[in-house]
Write a protein that binds this DNA or RNA. Structure first.
Lengths: 158, 158
DNA sequence: TTAATATCTAAAGCTAACTTTAGATCAAGT
DNA sequence: ACTTGATCTAAAGTTAGCTTTAGATATTAA
C-alpha cells in the first residue's frame, strides 16, 4: 500500500476550518495522531481531517473531549482507519444519537403533561428528577453508559 | 390573594437537590428573584423552586445560563408566575426541543449515508459543514434564533 | 541567499459555571 | 444568655476548552 501523504498543521486547520492553535491543542491532548519532521514540525496523515470533523460533530452533540477520546479510541492509531473502522464507530455513535432523540421526545411529552395538567409542580414530576438523579447515582466507572443515561452531559458539576 | 410564603436559601437548595452556593450564585446572577429579611438573609418565593428546576432542565439540554436568562425573562419578576406564564414559556421551549430532535434525526441520516456510501470524506459532505458553518455566519444579534440554528450550543469558542 | 511565512514551546490568559475559604453576622432552640 | 447551625460577603480557586504571547526555529519562494 502506498504510504499515506503527510500534511502540515496549517493544512489540517484550513481544511477543517479551525485555528492552528486548536489543532495543536488536540494533538497535544492525544485526540489526533501526529509524527514529527526532521526539523521538529508536526506532520499529520490526511485522515486526521476526518478525525477532527468527527470531534467537532461530537462536541456539537454535547460530548466532552474526554468522552470523545474514548469514542475515538476504537480507531487505530498506527494506521489510517478503514471504512470498517469508521462504520463500527458510527454504529456506537448512532446509538447515542437515538438515545438522545428518545430522551428529548420524552422530555417534550413530560413538559406538555406538566404544564397541561395544571399542577405546575415541575420540581416534583418526572421531568427533572427521575432522569437525572438516577444518572447521578452511577458508580463512576461507566463512561459510555453514563453518557447514554444522562443524555446531555453538558453539566460542569463535579 | 394571600401573600406568597417566603423560604430560605437552604430550603430551595434542598428541594432542588443542589448546593446552597449554587442557589446563591443564581440569585447573584439574576436568574432567580429574591428579597432580603431585616437581618440581611435572602428570602425566596416558593415558586423559585420551579424556576430552578427549569434552569437545570434547560442546562441539561445544552443552554448557557445567558440563554436561559433570556428564556426566563418572559416570566414576571414581581409576581409569582401563573400557569399561563409557564405555558407560554414551555411553548417556546418546546419548539427548541423539536428543532433539536430534527437536527439529530438529520445528523443520524447523514452519518449513515456518509459511512454507507464508502466515500469516507466526512469533512466534505453535509455532516459538519452545511449545518454549522451557516450558523457561524449569523450577524450576532439573534440569540434565540442562533440557538435554533446551531442546535447544540455547547461550543465554548469565541 | 535572503526575506517572508509557518511552526514550535512554554507559559499565561480567558470564559463559563461553579465551589471553597475565611471571617463575620443571623436565627433558633434551650 | 448561650450555643449551634444557617447565611452573608468578598475573594480566590477549579475545570474544560481554548487562544494569545514571546521568542526561537523551520520551511518556502524568489
Amino acid at each position: 500500500m502506498a504510504p499515506e501523504p503527510m500534511v502540515s498543521i496549517g493544512f489540517i486547520a484550513k481544511r477543517t476550518g479551525n485555528a492552528v492553535s486548536l489543532i495543536r491543542y488536540y494533538a497535544n491532548e492525544g485526540l489526533i495522531p501526529s509524527v514529527r519532521t526532521s526539523g521538529g514540525n508536526r506532520a499529520f496523515p490526511r485522515s486526521v481531517i476526518r478525525r477532527v470533523s468527527f470531534i467537532l460533530i461530537a462536541q456539537n452533540m454535547g460530548y466532552s473531549l474526554a468522552n470523545i477520546k474514548d469514542l475515538l479510541s476504537t480507531l487505530p492509531d498506527n494506521r489510517t482507519p478503514t471504512q470498517a473502522d469508521w462504520a463500527k464507530l458510527s454504529r456506537v455513535f448512532n446509538e447515542h444519537i437515538e438515545a438522545k432523540i428518545a430522551a428529548l421526545t420524552s422530555l417534550k411529552a413530560s413538559l406538555e403533561g406538566c404544564i397541561g395538567c395544571g399542577c405546575l409542580s415541575l420540581e416534583r414530576c418526572r421531568l427533572y428528577n427521575s432522569d437525572d438523579k438516577v444518572a447521578a447515582q452511577g458508580s463512576g466507572a461507566q463512561l459510555l453508559d453514563e453518557n447514554v443515561q444522562s443524555q446531555f452531559l453538558v453539566s460542569h458539576k463535579k
